[in-house]
Amino acid sequence: MQDLIVNNVSKSFNKGKVKALVDVSFSVEKGELFGIIGPDGAGKTTLFRILTTLLLADEGMATVNGSDVIIDYKAIRNNVGYMPGKFSLYQDLTVEENLVFFASIFNTTVEENYKLIEDIYVQLEPFKNRRAGKLSGGMKQKLALCCALIHRPAVLFLDEPTTGVDAVSRKEFWEMLKRLKKEGITILVSTPYMDEANLCERIALIQKGEILSIDTPNNITEQYPDKLLAVKSDNMSLLLKDLRKNENVKSAFSFGEYHHISFVDGFKNDPMQSDLFGANNHTNISMKPIAATVEDCFIHLMSKHEVNGN
């Protein structure tokens, strides 16, 4: 059963000047962990707000948990949990006061669904009398998740839960999501971090309001059309410039300690042998073939899209 259906949804702001979403369609199965991956300004938050009945789409329709986002908005508001991108709890209330408050506005009590949040809340318990505003970033985010889960929603919307959070807290957060998935909750999560895509079952890559691709992370990376090489040398910045000058190189982007390069069609020479690097003498060159990451795919799709667009 599909818990979330989005059909041809478009939304623009400032009287059509800013297109936030362009003809977006996708669906999410019940109990699925679905990721919306894209940079800031791609339209992620607008999409989330339409699905949580906070905004009306200009065109298209969407259903959440079997209810139409416009007609049955009240039903949706009973059944979804939502964690906005910005930390949205009462900073001047304590951890416990926040939780009790949000439980009550969802017509439930902390005790009723405590089992669901227990794993997360035990980490917060020592600070339950601390004001939410005084918590660390990771703790705030855990509290926000607890508050969004307290009424055991059927669908959970997490808008950039890991933005601005350090790597450790990010990892912990994804662990929590995996556990929640086992409880059968459908989770829609957005993130600008491409490396988090692999932690989702299926992902939609989104850029400038348009969906570039929807599939499992594996299928998306497998569809990368070119062979990829990872290259490094002692002078990475010069290496990148030299690679870009080479006419056989189709794309060259830095990825951490390596540059990822692909070649133009018809380049038959063994890249290991050929003179890729121009006249400069690079030392300690190392090269290896690698599989594309989601970020490689995103860059590829984004460039392709822009070429087609223009």
């Binding site: 906070l54 508001r77 939502y82 906005p84 009462y90 969802f106 017509n107």
Partner: peptide, 13 residues
């Protein structure tokens, strides 16, 4: 401003 209105609106309240 703090974004709590979003959560309140998405609640059954």
């Amino acid at each position: 401003e703090k974004g709590t209105m979003e959560i309140l609106l998405v609640s059954p309240m």
